[in-house]
Amino acid sequence: MVRNLFFHFMKDIDLKLIEIFCYVYEYKSVTKASSELNMSQSTISFHMKNLETQLGQKLFYRKGKTLIPTAFADKLYEYATELTNFKRRMLEDITKFSGKNGGVIRIGASSIPGNYLLPQLLGEFIENFKGYVNVELRVSDSQDIYEKVINGDVDLGIIGYLPRTNKVDAIKFYTDRILIVGNPELEDKVYTLEELINLPLVIREVGSGTRSIVEDKLREKGLSLKEMNIVAVCNSNEAVKNTLKYVKGFSFLSSYVVKDDKFLIKLKVKNFDDITRQFYLIRDKKRPLPFLTQELIKFLIKDIYV
Protein backbone atom coordinates (compact mmCIF):
# COMPACT_ATOMS: atom_id res chain seq x y z
CA MET A 1 0.00 0.00 0.00
CA VAL A 2 2.76 2.46 1.02
CA ARG A 3 4.79 1.45 -2.03
CA ASN A 4 1.87 2.11 -4.37
CA LEU A 5 1.25 5.46 -2.66
CA PHE A 6 4.82 6.63 -3.25
CA PHE A 7 4.89 5.58 -6.88
CA HIS A 8 1.52 7.34 -7.29
CA PHE A 9 3.14 10.49 -5.89
CA MET A 10 6.13 10.22 -8.20
CA LYS A 11 4.51 9.17 -11.46
CA ASP A 12 4.23 12.74 -12.80
CA ILE A 13 7.49 14.06 -11.29
CA ASP A 14 10.54 14.80 -13.41
CA LEU A 15 13.19 12.16 -12.69
CA LYS A 16 15.78 14.94 -12.68
CA LEU A 17 14.14 16.37 -9.54
CA ILE A 18 14.42 12.95 -7.91
CA GLU A 19 18.12 12.72 -8.81
CA ILE A 20 18.78 16.20 -7.35
CA PHE A 21 16.86 15.21 -4.22
CA CYS A 22 19.15 12.17 -3.80
CA TYR A 23 22.24 14.39 -3.80
CA VAL A 24 20.74 16.81 -1.25
CA TYR A 25 19.60 13.87 0.90
CA GLU A 26 23.02 12.17 0.83
CA TYR A 27 25.07 15.30 1.53
CA LYS A 28 22.51 16.88 3.92
CA SER A 29 23.53 20.17 2.33
CA VAL A 30 22.46 22.28 -0.64
CA THR A 31 25.97 23.73 -0.80
CA LYS A 32 27.69 20.33 -1.17
CA ALA A 33 25.02 19.10 -3.62
CA SER A 34 25.55 22.28 -5.62
CA SER A 35 29.29 21.57 -5.89
CA GLU A 36 28.71 17.94 -6.95
CA LEU A 37 26.03 18.78 -9.54
CA ASN A 38 27.70 21.96 -10.81
CA MET A 39 24.43 23.83 -10.28
CA SER A 40 23.76 27.03 -8.34
CA GLN A 41 22.44 26.72 -4.80
CA SER A 42 19.42 28.85 -5.71
CA THR A 43 18.55 26.46 -8.56
CA ILE A 44 18.75 23.42 -6.28
CA SER A 45 16.69 25.15 -3.57
CA PHE A 46 14.08 26.06 -6.20
CA HIS A 47 13.89 22.43 -7.39
CA MET A 48 13.55 21.11 -3.82
CA LYS A 49 10.75 23.59 -3.06
CA ASN A 50 9.07 22.56 -6.33
CA LEU A 51 9.37 18.88 -5.37
CA GLU A 52 7.89 19.55 -1.92
CA THR A 53 4.98 21.38 -3.55
CA GLN A 54 4.29 18.53 -5.96
CA LEU A 55 4.45 15.94 -3.20
CA GLY A 56 2.60 18.06 -0.67
CA GLN A 57 5.16 17.06 1.97
CA LYS A 58 8.07 18.71 3.77
CA LEU A 59 11.36 16.96 2.89
CA PHE A 60 13.95 18.69 5.09
CA TYR A 61 14.22 20.96 8.08
CA ARG A 62 17.34 22.88 9.05
CA LYS A 63 19.46 22.30 12.15
CA GLY A 64 22.36 24.74 12.12
CA LYS A 65 24.03 24.35 8.73
CA THR A 66 22.76 20.79 8.25
CA LEU A 67 19.58 19.67 6.52
CA ILE A 68 17.72 16.97 8.44
CA PRO A 69 15.50 14.69 6.32
CA THR A 70 11.92 14.14 7.42
CA ALA A 71 10.48 10.63 7.78
CA PHE A 72 8.77 11.19 4.42
CA ALA A 73 12.15 12.05 2.83
CA ASP A 74 13.69 8.87 4.28
CA LYS A 75 11.02 6.77 2.60
CA LEU A 76 11.17 8.79 -0.61
CA TYR A 77 14.93 8.19 -0.79
CA GLU A 78 14.41 4.41 -0.73
CA TYR A 79 12.25 4.55 -3.85
CA ALA A 80 14.26 7.35 -5.45
CA THR A 81 17.36 5.13 -5.44
CA GLU A 82 15.29 2.38 -7.10
CA LEU A 83 14.35 4.82 -9.86
CA THR A 84 17.88 6.13 -10.41
CA ASN A 85 19.31 2.58 -10.42
CA PHE A 86 16.62 1.57 -12.91
CA LYS A 87 17.58 4.50 -15.15
CA ARG A 88 21.25 3.45 -15.02
CA ARG A 89 20.44 -0.18 -15.90
CA MET A 90 18.09 0.91 -18.67
CA LEU A 91 20.76 3.13 -20.24
CA GLU A 92 23.27 0.29 -20.14
CA ASP A 93 20.84 -2.23 -21.66
CA ILE A 94 19.59 0.15 -24.35
CA THR A 95 23.08 1.12 -25.43
CA LYS A 96 24.06 -2.55 -25.65
CA PHE A 97 20.89 -3.43 -27.57
CA SER A 98 21.44 -0.58 -30.01
CA GLY A 99 24.98 -1.74 -30.68
CA LYS A 100 26.61 1.02 -28.63
CA ASN A 101 28.59 -0.90 -26.05
CA GLY A 102 28.60 1.23 -22.91
CA GLY A 103 26.55 2.71 -20.11
CA VAL A 104 26.93 4.51 -16.79
CA ILE A 105 29.83 4.18 -14.36
CA ARG A 106 29.13 5.11 -10.73
CA ILE A 107 32.42 5.44 -8.92
CA GLY A 108 33.34 6.92 -5.54
CA ALA A 109 36.81 7.92 -4.46
CA SER A 110 38.55 9.44 -1.47
CA SER A 111 40.16 12.82 -2.03
CA ILE A 112 43.60 11.73 -3.26
CA PRO A 113 42.52 9.26 -5.98
CA GLY A 114 39.42 11.34 -6.73
CA ASN A 115 41.28 14.61 -7.27
CA TYR A 116 44.75 13.53 -8.36
CA LEU A 117 44.65 10.03 -9.94
CA LEU A 118 41.24 9.34 -11.45
CA PRO A 119 40.65 12.43 -13.62
CA GLN A 120 43.42 11.46 -16.06
CA LEU A 121 42.67 7.73 -15.89
CA LEU A 122 38.93 8.21 -16.45
CA GLY A 123 39.67 10.60 -19.30
CA GLU A 124 41.88 7.99 -20.97
CA PHE A 125 39.23 5.30 -20.45
CA ILE A 126 36.49 7.46 -21.97
CA GLU A 127 38.69 8.31 -24.96
CA ASN A 128 39.75 4.70 -25.56
CA PHE A 129 36.39 3.02 -24.97
CA LYS A 130 34.49 2.54 -28.21
CA GLY A 131 30.97 3.36 -27.12
CA TYR A 132 28.80 5.41 -24.81
CA VAL A 133 30.23 6.24 -21.37
CA ASN A 134 28.64 8.40 -18.66
CA VAL A 135 30.80 8.75 -15.52
CA GLU A 136 29.34 9.72 -12.15
CA LEU A 137 32.31 10.41 -9.85
CA ARG A 138 31.70 11.20 -6.18
CA VAL A 139 34.60 12.41 -4.06
CA SER A 140 34.44 12.19 -0.26
CA ASP A 141 36.44 10.74 2.62
CA SER A 142 37.35 7.03 2.72
CA GLN A 143 34.74 6.07 5.32
CA ASP A 144 31.93 7.75 3.39
CA ILE A 145 32.94 6.11 0.11
CA TYR A 146 33.13 2.72 1.82
CA GLU A 147 29.56 3.20 3.08
CA LYS A 148 28.40 4.31 -0.37
CA VAL A 149 29.76 1.05 -1.83
CA ILE A 150 28.00 -1.02 0.85
CA ASN A 151 24.72 0.90 0.40
CA GLY A 152 24.82 0.59 -3.39
CA ASP A 153 25.14 4.34 -4.02
CA VAL A 154 28.24 3.62 -6.13
CA ASP A 155 29.36 0.39 -7.78
CA LEU A 156 33.07 0.90 -7.27
CA GLY A 157 35.14 2.72 -4.66
CA ILE A 158 38.79 3.74 -4.41
CA ILE A 159 39.90 4.51 -0.86
CA GLY A 160 43.13 5.00 1.07
CA TYR A 161 42.15 3.22 4.26
CA LEU A 162 40.53 -0.21 4.31
CA PRO A 163 38.16 -0.83 7.25
CA ARG A 164 38.34 -4.20 8.96
CA THR A 165 35.43 -5.86 7.18
CA ASN A 166 34.42 -8.87 5.14
CA LYS A 167 31.74 -7.04 3.19
CA VAL A 168 33.93 -5.91 0.29
CA ASP A 169 36.40 -7.35 -2.17
CA ALA A 170 39.54 -5.21 -2.30
CA ILE A 171 42.20 -4.98 -4.99
CA LYS A 172 45.47 -3.10 -4.42
CA PHE A 173 45.65 0.05 -6.53
CA TYR A 174 48.24 2.85 -6.38
CA THR A 175 50.78 3.27 -3.55
CA ASP A 176 51.18 6.62 -1.82
CA ARG A 177 53.52 8.25 0.69
CA ILE A 178 52.27 10.52 3.45
CA LEU A 179 54.79 13.22 4.28
CA ILE A 180 55.22 15.53 7.26
CA VAL A 181 55.10 19.01 5.73
CA GLY A 182 54.87 22.47 7.21
CA ASN A 183 55.17 26.21 7.01
CA PRO A 184 58.61 27.33 5.70
CA GLU A 185 59.33 29.04 9.05
CA LEU A 186 59.81 25.55 10.52
CA GLU A 187 62.71 24.76 8.18
CA ASP A 188 66.36 24.21 9.10
CA LYS A 189 65.77 22.05 12.13
CA VAL A 190 65.55 18.35 12.90
CA TYR A 191 62.61 17.78 15.24
CA THR A 192 62.12 15.09 17.84
CA LEU A 193 58.72 13.45 18.34
CA GLU A 194 58.39 15.32 21.63
CA GLU A 195 58.90 18.65 19.83
CA LEU A 196 56.44 17.62 17.12
CA ILE A 197 53.72 17.15 19.74
CA ASN A 198 53.91 20.82 20.73
CA LEU A 199 53.88 22.29 17.20
CA PRO A 200 50.53 23.54 15.81
CA LEU A 201 48.96 20.71 13.81
CA VAL A 202 46.46 21.10 10.96
CA ILE A 203 44.76 17.76 10.35
CA ARG A 204 42.12 16.18 8.12
CA GLU A 205 38.67 15.31 9.47
CA VAL A 206 37.61 12.03 11.12
CA GLY A 207 36.84 9.54 8.34
CA SER A 208 39.73 10.70 6.16
CA GLY A 209 41.99 7.87 5.01
CA THR A 210 45.05 10.04 5.57
CA ARG A 211 44.04 10.74 9.15
CA SER A 212 43.32 7.06 9.87
CA ILE A 213 46.72 5.97 8.54
CA VAL A 214 48.47 8.69 10.54
CA GLU A 215 46.66 7.63 13.72
CA ASP A 216 47.86 4.04 13.18
CA LYS A 217 51.44 5.20 12.66
CA LEU A 218 51.40 7.41 15.75
CA ARG A 219 49.98 4.55 17.78
CA GLU A 220 53.00 2.44 16.77
CA LYS A 221 55.18 5.20 18.23
CA GLY A 222 53.18 5.26 21.44
CA LEU A 223 51.52 8.56 20.52
CA SER A 224 47.96 9.74 19.99
CA LEU A 225 46.43 12.66 18.10
CA LYS A 226 44.79 13.64 21.40
CA GLU A 227 48.23 14.46 22.75
CA MET A 228 49.05 16.77 19.86
CA ASN A 229 48.45 20.49 19.46
CA ILE A 230 45.61 20.38 16.90
CA VAL A 231 44.72 23.93 15.88
CA ALA A 232 42.52 23.20 12.84
CA VAL A 233 40.57 20.31 11.33
CA CYS A 234 39.89 20.56 7.58
CA ASN A 235 37.73 18.47 5.26
CA SER A 236 40.00 18.85 2.22
CA ASN A 237 43.70 18.76 1.44
CA GLU A 238 43.57 22.17 -0.23
CA ALA A 239 42.12 23.65 2.95
CA VAL A 240 45.00 22.14 4.94
CA LYS A 241 47.55 23.62 2.54
CA ASN A 242 45.93 27.06 2.60
CA THR A 243 45.71 27.07 6.40
CA LEU A 244 49.43 26.34 6.68
CA LYS A 245 50.13 29.53 4.72
CA TYR A 246 48.98 31.46 7.79
CA VAL A 247 49.83 29.08 10.63
CA LYS A 248 53.39 28.30 11.67
CA GLY A 249 52.52 24.62 11.93
CA PHE A 250 52.61 21.29 10.13
CA SER A 251 50.44 18.52 8.73
CA PHE A 252 50.52 15.03 7.24
CA LEU A 253 49.79 15.18 3.50
CA SER A 254 49.97 12.84 0.53
CA SER A 255 52.92 13.14 -1.84
CA TYR A 256 50.35 13.65 -4.62
CA VAL A 257 48.97 16.72 -2.83
CA VAL A 258 52.32 18.47 -2.41
CA LYS A 259 53.91 17.26 -5.65
CA ASP A 260 53.74 20.67 -7.37
CA ASP A 261 53.48 22.79 -4.23
CA LYS A 262 56.06 25.60 -4.06
CA PHE A 263 55.28 26.80 -0.53
CA LEU A 264 55.30 23.95 1.98
CA ILE A 265 58.55 22.32 3.12
CA LYS A 266 59.15 18.76 4.24
CA LEU A 267 59.95 18.56 7.95
CA LYS A 268 62.84 16.51 9.27
CA VAL A 269 61.75 14.36 12.21
CA LYS A 270 63.96 11.89 14.09
CA ASN A 271 62.78 8.26 14.09
CA PHE A 272 59.76 9.02 11.90
CA ASP A 273 59.97 7.93 8.28
CA ASP A 274 57.49 8.74 5.53
CA ILE A 275 54.29 6.73 5.87
CA THR A 276 53.58 4.36 3.00
CA ARG A 277 49.94 3.52 2.33
CA GLN A 278 48.00 1.58 -0.24
CA PHE A 279 44.95 2.71 -2.16
CA TYR A 280 42.34 0.00 -2.61
CA LEU A 281 39.75 -0.57 -5.30
CA ILE A 282 36.68 -1.95 -3.49
CA ARG A 283 33.34 -3.47 -4.51
CA ASP A 284 30.45 -5.01 -2.61
CA LYS A 285 30.89 -8.79 -2.49
CA LYS A 286 27.18 -9.46 -2.89
CA ARG A 287 26.34 -7.02 -5.69
CA PRO A 288 27.05 -7.92 -9.34
CA LEU A 289 29.06 -5.29 -11.17
CA PRO A 290 27.66 -3.65 -14.32
CA PHE A 291 29.52 -4.65 -17.46
CA LEU A 292 31.06 -1.22 -18.02
CA THR A 293 32.35 -1.03 -14.43
CA GLN A 294 34.09 -4.39 -14.96
CA GLU A 295 35.69 -2.96 -18.09
CA LEU A 296 36.90 0.08 -16.12
CA ILE A 297 38.47 -2.14 -13.45
CA LYS A 298 40.30 -4.12 -16.14
CA PHE A 299 41.55 -0.83 -17.57
CA LEU A 300 42.68 0.52 -14.18
CA ILE A 301 44.59 -2.58 -13.09
CA LYS A 302 45.22 -3.99 -16.59
CA ASP A 303 47.05 -7.19 -15.59
CA ILE A 304 44.45 -8.48 -13.12
CA TYR A 305 41.39 -10.32 -14.39
CA VAL A 306 38.08 -9.28 -12.81
Rank of each mutant, 00 (worst) to 15 (best):
D155R: 03
G99R: 07
S142V: 00
D261K: 01
D93G: 06
H47L: 12
D260H: 07
L17M: 15
D141W: 00
D74F: 05
V231M: 08
M48A: 05
S45R: 15
T84M: 14
K298Q: 15
F72I: 09
E127Y: 04
I301Y: 06
G64P: 10
L292R: 10
V247M: 00
K130V: 03
N237P: 03
S42D: 15
F72N: 12
K268Q: 13
K245G: 03
Y77R: 12
P200H: 04
Y23C: 07
S34L: 06
Y116L: 11
N134Y: 11
L186G: 12
I282L: 11
K96D: 14
M90T: 10
S212M: 13
N151W: 02
T175N: 15
I213R: 15
F21H: 01
F250E: 00
A80H: 08
F46P: 04
F86C: 03
L193I: 10
I178T: 10
L121R: 14
D188V: 02
N166F: 05
N242W: 03
A71V: 07
L17R: 08
L196E: 00
I230A: 08
S34E: 09
E195S: 01
E238Y: 07
V214L: 03
S111M: 12
L201Y: 01
V206N: 13
F86D: 15
I18N: 09
Y161G: 05
E124D: 14
L55M: 09
N38K: 15
K286G: 10
S98N: 11
S34H: 06
E295W: 05
A170E: 12
L15S: 14
I301V: 15
K16Q: 11
A80Y: 03
Y23R: 12
D274V: 05
I20C: 04
F272P: 01
G114E: 08
S255P: 00
E82Y: 10
I213T: 14
L281M: 14
I230F: 06
K189V: 09
R277F: 12
L67P: 09
D303T: 15
F46Q: 13
Y146H: 04
F173N: 02
R277E: 07
T53S: 13
A170R: 03
L289W: 07
L137Y: 03
G157T: 10
E52T: 10
L223T: 04
I150C: 01
R89K: 13
G157W: 06
I203M: 13
L51Q: 02
H47G: 08
N128A: 13
L289E: 12
I94T: 13
E185D: 14
Q54R: 14
K28I: 01
G182R: 00
I203A: 04
R287C: 10
Y25L: 04
V247K: 02
V214S: 03
N85T: 13
I180Y: 01
I126A: 12
L196F: 00
L267F: 00
Q41Y: 02
R283H: 10
V231L: 10
L118P: 11
I68S: 09
I18E: 05
E194M: 06
R3W: 04
Q143Y: 06
L186Y: 05
D303V: 07
N50V: 02
I275L: 09
L300W: 05
K270E: 15
Y256M: 11
G222R: 03
L193G: 07
Y79T: 03
L76Y: 09
K65F: 06
K286M: 14
K28N: 15
R277P: 04
R287A: 12
R89S: 14
Y27H: 09
